[in-house]
Design a binder for these strands. Structure first.
Length: 335
RNA sequence: GCCAGGGUAGCCAAGGUGGUCACGGCGCGUGUCUGAAAAACAUGAGAUCCCGGCUCAACUCCGGGCCCUGGCA
């Protein structure tokens, strides 16, 4: 039976480090499930934590994935391959559909090698999409159409969504019905179009419950916030500023994911500030960055808490690591 | 010391001719989620500097106090 391990939880809990340990113990390979580590060039801010001079091994042709769009391959960290890092440049709008498309063959190939795929990351939506499928995955985004709809009020979007796609609209809850992006998507799905690349039925892996082991790493809020502060400080020291400066030679905050990524978008003002005032601005950058990171961690917790399959481990408890190993072992050994 | 302006939630901040639950934003809490998800959205809690006065009624008016900001010295 093909098995798959998921390591999830909020940011800054040490998911990757744990996953590498588990990969060594159970002969596994990591598959990134973090929506930002997908991007090339965004290393320090997204916390890829690769050893210096890590070499990327491209495997597109082996997997039969066109290189023009995605670069698929792995880095070797302590002998463990990590897949799905650096898949696209920051000006490509990666989505859950891209993720499913790219993660599925990678995981199948790991199984063929008789190894254990370990999905690591905090993007709950990607994990869910990959493991449960997405019904409307065959319907591509129509950006010009979206742009047009963005001009409408929520009220008008609601009316239109209800008219054009009553099934989906009626299933939406109060919160979603006030979310323009959701409403626009509902309208878009029902909007006739001629392009539309087909992609299976729902995509994803479609696994049984016993095949997947969900591992969640967590800590009390105070600890979490402390970890976040530490990691922000570390990333500053690692030269995130310089990394962004480099990225800005090719991309801008407006035309790339830099403008909507924590740890990057907070620097926008910094790079428009004259040198003599930069120090002052940097303080604001760091404050805003930490805050955003904390808020994000809470949202992740809210998302993962709902998933009753997750086996939670607190990194504050003594002996948590061996408890994790034991739990995984018991699950993995079972036929 | 004098002149002017001001003190409204953790922070920023609107208000008024005295009269139902005091506008917002940020932050904080809780939650939503099938192609933007490190995104977007929903929802909750929380305030009138102190003392006295006028009044049926003051955050709003009057007097005093304390504190802050700017200008002049």
């Amino acid at each position: 039976m093909n098995k798959l391990l998921v390591v999830c939880g909020p940011t800054a809990m040490g998911k990757t480090a744990l996953a590498i340990e588990l990969a060594k113990k159970f002969t596994g390979e990591l598959v990134n499930a973090d929506s930002r580590q997908i991007y090339r060039g965004m290393d320090i801010g997204t916390g890829k934590d690769l050893p210096v001079n890590s070499k990327f091994k491209t495997q597109n042709s082996k997997l039969g994935i066109k290189k023009e769009r995605y670069q698929i391959g792995y880095y070797l960290v302590s002998g463990v391959p990590i897949w799905l890092l650096d898949v696209v440049w920051p000006d490509y709008r990666f989505s859950v559909a891209d993720y499913i498309r790219v993660a599925t063959p990678v995981i199948r190939a790991i199984w063929q090698r008789k190894k254990l795929p370990i999905l690591v990351g905090g993007t709950g939506f990607y994990l869910k999409g990959l493991l449960e499928g997405v019904d409307t995955i065959g319907i591509t985004p129509d950006w010009p159409f979206r742009k047009k709809l963005e001009g409408l009020t929520v009220d008008r979007l609601q009316k239109r969504a209800q008219k054009v796609n009553p099934n989906r609209f009626n299933r939406m809850n109060y919160s979603d019905r006030h979310n323009p992006r959701r409403l626009i998507r509902v309208i878009e799905v029902a909007h006739p179009r001629q392009d539309g690349e087909k992609f299976g039925e729902g995509g994803g892996l479609v696994l049984d419950k016993e095949q997947v082991f969900w591992l969640g790493l967590t800590a009390a809020i105070g600890k979490l916030d402390q970890k976040i502060s530490q990691r922000v400080k570390k990333r500053l020291e690692m030269g995130l500023g310089a990394e962004i400066e480099e990225l800005l030679k090719r991309f801008s905050f407006d035309n790339s994911v830099l403008g909507e990524t924590i740890g990057y978008r907070q620097w926008q003002e910094y790079f428009q500030t004259p040198p003599n005032q930069k120090d002052q601005v940097l303080d604001d950058v760091v404050d805003g960055w930490k805050r955003a990171e904390r808020q994000y961690a809470r949202r992740q917790l809210t998302w993962f808490k709902k998933n009753k399959q997750v086996n939670w481990f607190s990194i504050e408890k003594k002996g948590w690591l061996s408890a994790v190993v034991k739990a995984v072992d018991q699950w993995y050994i079972k036929k």
